Simulated scan of single mutants.
Amino acid sequence: MMRPLLIALTAATLAGCAVTPSAPRSTAAVAPYRDSVELAGRIAINYSRDGKKESLNGKFVWQQSKANTDVSLISPTGQTVAVINVTPSSATLKESGKQALTAPDLDTLTQKTLGWTLPVSGLRDWLQGYATASDGKRFVATPANDNVITRDGWKLEYVSWQDENAAVPQPKRIDVTRIALGQAVDDMAIRIVIDPVAQ
Rank of each mutant, 00 (worst) to 15 (best):
G97I: 00
I84G: 12
L106S: 13
K112S: 14
T87Y: 08
D107E: 13
E95F: 01
V86F: 05
L106Q: 10
K94C: 04
Q111W: 06
S90Y: 06
K112P: 02
N85M: 04
T87I: 06
S89A: 12
Q111G: 13
P104F: 02
S96F: 09
S90R: 12
T113N: 08
Q99R: 11
G97S: 02
T108C: 04
N85S: 14
A91M: 04
T108A: 15
L93I: 04
T102F: 06
K98Y: 09
G97V: 00
K112C: 02
K98H: 11
A91E: 00
A103H: 06
N85V: 06
S96Y: 06
L93A: 15
A103F: 08
T113C: 05
T110S: 15
Q111K: 11
D107A: 15
K94W: 03
L93G: 00
P104M: 06
T108R: 13
K98D: 07
K112H: 09
D107H: 04
T102G: 07
Q111F: 10
G97F: 03
Q111M: 09
D105G: 05
L106H: 01
D107M: 07
K94D: 06
A103G: 01
N85K: 13
D105T: 02
T113A: 14
L109A: 06
I84Y: 08
S96W: 05
P88L: 01
S96L: 12
V86P: 03
T92V: 14
Q111A: 09
V86A: 11
E95C: 08
S90V: 00
L101T: 08
L109M: 07
S96V: 14
T87Q: 08
P88Q: 00
T87H: 08
S96Q: 11
K98R: 12
P88M: 01
I84K: 05
L106A: 15
D105N: 15
A91V: 01
L93T: 00
T110K: 05
L109V: 03
T87G: 09
P104C: 01
S90P: 01
L101Y: 07
T110I: 03
T92M: 11
E95T: 10
A91C: 07
L101G: 01
L109G: 07
K94I: 11
I84L: 15
S90L: 07
K112F: 04
P104W: 00
I84E: 11
L93H: 01
A100M: 04
T102Q: 13
T87A: 10
K112E: 12
L109Q: 06
A100F: 03
A91L: 04
